[in-house]
Design a protein around this nucleic acid. Structure first.
Length: 302
DNA sequence: AAGACGAAAGTGGTTGA
DNA sequence: TCAACAACTTTCGTCTT
């Protein structure tokens, strides 16, 4: 059955998303307010997000499961004739209301989780991550949902943060940049959610070690295994000399790879290494001078 | 000519009063 | 809440290969 305008009977109804209203195309009667889709893109938690919210455009469908048309038990203890209810009837209505509310909350949680998991899957495959990382990310996300930690932050950001954490947990770290590249959330938000999740789930992951990044950098730059081992050796020396902590691990790893490649005659330009590590030549240079200054003897040991 | 170097100014996030 | 701060980036002129 199609909805019709109570004023003129027209069934030509127009949705005005800008104002969140359902309007009769015949006479302009406003039939319903607040039909706006409450999907994640519409929510904005700070000015930055409000500014770019327009990218979402109008929702393609009304994702409210009942499309706003199903019967809702209202809060008045009256029947449809406006008469009061008997105590038994009141108790029954009370139970119905309770269950209807529960069902809605449950369905919305399920829907959001399903969306988050598909996002995790999409990002993971874009980053070329193996199955166990995806499963770890899904596990972390579900735990975050169970701990009521999603409230007040976007699903996208929490899903990305879960993936970021899972990468570390599985020893295949991706930098925040890399995750942000394939995520719809901003790097800043992901970082925030990440810290929040770690604290909330009392999950403590040690900061990523530069050595974890070496295999990826090396393969992206098509460098041999010898270069990899040399880079790891350099990193071990650097770590002993306290040149690692407080620095961005990828940057340190990039410098080690650059030096190792040079030592073994598989030269790569700073530009190439910087690109693979998503950093700049300047950063690599400053890491290099720090490392070379104190491990120069490595150059003369073959 | 391309790559490496380093100075200087700018950026965004953290920390501690 | 704000200023100081450290790490990193951008930009640019100069030197090296």
């Amino acid at each position: 059955m199609k909805a019709a305008c109570p004023e003129c009977g027209s069934t030509r109804l127009v949705r005005d998303y800008g104002h969140g209203e359902l309007i009769c195309g015949g006479c302009g009667y406003v039939m319903a307010e607040r039909i706006m889709d409450l999907g994640p893109e519409w929510r904005a938690y700070d000015q930055e997000e409000r500014d770019r919210r327009d990218r979402a455009g109008a929702p393609m469908t009304l994702t409210i499961h009942d499309k706003g048309l199903a019967t809702v038990i209202d809060w008045r203890d009256r029947d449809s004739y406006g008469k009061g209810l008997t105590p038994e009837r009141k108790a029954q209505v009370y139970r119905l209301r309770k269950w209807q509310l529960r069902a809605r909350v449950y369905e919305s949680l399920e829907r959001n989780t399903a969306f988050a998991l598909s996002e995790i899957d999409r990002m993971a495959s874009q980053l070329g991550l193996p199955r166990d990382v995806r499963e770890a990310a899904a596990r972390i996300y579900r735990r975050a949902v169970e701990s009521r930690m999603i409230r007040g932050r976007s699903i996208e950001a929490v899903a990305s943060a879960a993936l970021y954490a899972a990468c570390r947990e599985c020893g295949v770290p991706r930098s925040l940049e890399e995750v942000a590249e394939v995520s719809r959330a901003r790097k800043k938000e992901i970082g925030r959610s990440y810290r929040f999740i770690l604290r909330g789930l009392s999950l403590h992951l040690p900061p990523a070690s530069p050595a974890d990044y070496v295999p990826r950098l090396a393969s992206e730059l098509r460098l041999s295994g010898e270069v990899q081992s040399k880079a790891v050796e350099i990193l071990r020396e650097a770590a002993e000399r306290g040149l690692v902590s407080g620095r961005e691990p990828v940057g340190v790893a990039a410098a080690a790879v650059y030096i190792a490649a040079q030592m073994l005659g598989e030269r790569r330009t700073q530009r190439q290494v910087a690109e693979a590590a998503r950093t700049t030549e300047v950063t690599i240079r400053s890491r290099c001078t720090a490392i070379c200054g104190s491990v120069k003897h490595l150059f003369f040991r073959g």
